[in-house]
Write a protein that binds this DNA or RNA. Structure first.
Length: 212
DNA sequence: CACCAGGCAAGTA
DNA sequence: TACTTGCATGGT
């Protein structure tokens, strides 16, 4: 299994190359993006982030002080704008109250403790927490998303209805614990899934790499 | 027109 | 534990 997962990684990397995730200018932008991208196309998230930047709200204290109605209006393109406004406020309250909105301070927290803390924030589930841990704070945790489950269940390496922790264990138990590897691997899974493994093409005839 | 996109929480049984 | 539903825009 270790060799198989490594083989898939190298195949993906040679086909798609470095993905340079997470596309953002700051740690805080990654935290915000992780919430905004919940069940939402990334291009829509980019529009929302741009709006926040335009109004100088991509800053913990300023965003926390902003009226919910204003935030909702600006992040509208990302969908679910009311619930995501609440979720951003919840995450901000945690970040400001527990770490003084200090990126260095929160980055210094241990992986296990910080993961538990993030999961206790309403609106932050396992994927959002792990995305923040890996891509914002460079913690060695493997991010699982719907793409991962789809691609690897089609490879028969995961059950169709595998739970998050179960899928995560497949990677964590069989790969070298390495932030750079976890970063690139997850991004590559997203890349191949978008290209060759979409829902509407359950069996892709043109995939040159036997990914689907 | 239908379907999908880098989820999560709350409710029900 | 195992379902179901609400949340919502923009692209194809």
């Amino acid at each position: 299994m270790k060799r198989k997962l490594n083989s898939i990684y190298h195949k993906l990397y040679s086909c798609f190359g470095a993905q340079h995730w997470w596309p953002a200018d700051s740690i805080f932008e990654i935290m915000v993006g992780a919430v905004l991208t919940q069940n939402t196309n990334w291009s829509n998230v980019e529009k929302a982030i741009e709006n926040l930047k335009k109004y100088k709200l991509l800053d913990p204290q300023r965003l926390y002080n902003a009226a919910n109605s204003k935030i909702a209006r600006l992040i509208r393109p990302a969908g679910y704008y009311n619930i995501k406004t609440q979720r951003l406020k919840e995450l901000l309250r945690f970040y400001i109250n527990n770490y003084g909105a200090n990126a260095r301070k929160i980055s210094a927290r241990g992986l296990t403790d910080l993961r538990r803390e993030l999961l206790s924030v309403k609106g932050v589930g396992p994927e959002t927490a792990d995305s923040i841990l890996l891509y914002a704070f460079n913690k060695p945790i493997f991010v699982i998303d719907s793409y991962t489950k789809r691609v690897f269940s089609r490879h028969k390496l995961l059950k169709e209805d595998a739970e998050y922790d179960e899928a995560q264990r497949l990677f964590m138990d069989n790969l070298t614990v390495d932030v750079k590897l976890f970063n690139e691997y997850h991004a590559l899974i997203v890349a191949v899934a978008k290209t060759y493994c979409s829902k509407s093409h359950p069996k892709c005839a043109v995939c040159p790499l036997d990914f689907c």
